[in-house]
């Protein structure tokens, strides 16, 4: 591992520990919801990094179609995989929060529905990759699908703002009178949230980089295996 990688990963670990401590120690207990509100810091951070991952996948896909360089396809693939894990965490943490606050694990609210749609769309991306053998065509189809898939991301973002939803909007003005679990942010809550967002974004970048490197190594190995096979033919 190179020295800058060690610094990068070390910083991420330190910030993640600090952010977790801030969530449980520094941030105040929310008056109405109590300790369960603390899950909000994880929920918003994983949701943000999840959607960030899909944006990276979009950029990687456009870059692949323009350059045909395999590294962009590998980056997109890695970003979708990491993004799916993060979005899964966002959905699970949201559900854990909803149980005591909304009195249900799940409800067909527009925000929840559209987030799940995004999750399924990117799961389909992985299934598509699995269904194409030719690496060049696989990369091209995956890039096209990742671009189409990203159309669902702004819909998810806007759904809580345009439609009647019970999902709270903590950042920015809420337009839905039906939002349940809405709360104001105190300065300490803001500090904790900013720290969490930075720490999780760094964690995302580390995970993305590692998955990307594994992906590159895997494809290089496949290429070597095919060359060896071809030389025996």
């Amino acid at each position: 591992m190179r020295s800058w990688e060690r610094i990068w990963i070390g910083t991420t670990i330190v910030l993640m520990v600090m952010a977790t401590l801030a969530v449980f120690v520094y941030a105040p207990r929310e008056a109405k919801m109590g300790d369960v509100q603390r899950i909000f810091y994880f929920h918003i951070s994983t949701a943000w990094t999840g959607f960030l991952a899909f944006a990276v996948a979009l950029i990687g896909s456009i870059a692949y179609l323009r350059t045909r360089a395999a590294r962009w396809d590998q980056l997109s693939h890695a970003a979708v995989e990491v993004g799916l894990v993060l979005l899964t965490m966002a959905i699970i943490t949201g559900s854990l929060w909803a149980r005591p606050v909304w009195n249900t694990w799940w409800t067909w609210d527009p925000r929840l529905t559209t987030t799940t749609i995004t999750w399924v769309v990117y799961l389909a991306y992985l299934l598509l990759r699995n269904a194409v053998e030719n690496p060049e065509i696989r990369a091209r189809f995956a890039a096209v699908y990742a671009i189409v898939a990203f159309v669902t991301v702004p819909i998810t973002y806007l759904s809580a703002r345009l439609l009647r939803t019970i999902h709270p909007i903590v950042l920015g003005p809420s337009v839905s009178a039906e939002a349940q679990g809405q709360f104001g942010l105190t300065p300490r809550m803001v500090h904790t949230m900013v720290l969490s967002l930075i720490a999780w974004t760094l964690l995302f970048s580390v995970l993305l980089w590692m998955r990307y490197r594994v992906q590159r190594a895997h494809e290089a190995l496949e290429g070597m295996e095919a060359s060896i096979e071809a030389s025996f033919r």
Partner: peptide
Amino acid sequence: MATRARELLLPILLFPVAAP
């Protein structure tokens, strides 16, 4: 249609994108 699981793959690709 250009993949090996075409009949199954089309609804898998289409339904989530068309869901909204």
